[in-house]
Amino acid sequence: MSLEEFISSGVLESYVLGTASADEIKKIWEMQRKYPEISREIEAIEASLMNYAEENTKLPSEHLKNKIQQQLFTSQPAASVKPEAKVVQMSVSENKAAAVLRFAVAASFALLIASAAFNFVLYHKLHSANQELAELHSEKEVMAGQYKIQQTALSEKSDELAMIIKPGNKMVMLKGIDVAPQASAMIVWNTINKSVYIDAATLPMPPEGKQYQLWALVNGKPVDAGVFTMQDGKFVMQKMKDMPDNAQAYAVTLEKMGGSAVPTMDAMYLIGNV
């Protein structure tokens, strides 16, 4: 490895930051013997880091140095010598008591240590349990969200279904002609209350500025049944204008935004007889 490569590998930075591995440190020492530049590089890195830490930091309070010096240098051995303890001669029976006491102390120490270890283990278990709980909780939130979405979808579908199976409903299938032979749509037309719904899921997307319009053929004349749009990029079942029960056919044409007064015959997409 060349000197240049070695310096730019970032290993000297790790070294000063204290995260270099033992192998890396060995390598640094090797290189340092060969290239004195390395020492300068290390010093520069250290100076930069110290400068960075010093930025925006005030000097420590003036008394702090004294305070530390006092703690380090004036608490001379005098402080560590404890006042002489009173020595009491013990009788033999007291010795026995002392032995029991010693045992008791030793036992309680052992218990203390065992309990500390146990606490430690418990603490870790608690910690991981808490973490698991948090994870499960967020998982639950996600599931609840998905459940809600499914519910909404389901209730939409059952509304559609309820609409379809109403008494008096007539289904009219519209088939694609020349322009879009693959397309189709279904009209659900209630001959009792005259309501008309269209489900045109397979129609191609209308071009910009255009809209599909539904027509009904009543007494041989096209009658506007309204325009329909997409929701979220899809055609969903939509309510159209009410139609008398003597409509003979339905058709869909592509019209300008907002629809036309008369259908554009050469832009007819779908047609179906009742």
Binding site: Y52, A53, E54, E55, T57, L59, P60, L64
Partner: peptide
């Protein structure tokens, strides 16, 4: 070093 260490 005290200033840099305090900064850390």
């Amino acid at each position: 070093y005290s200033r840099a260490l305090l900064g850390v």
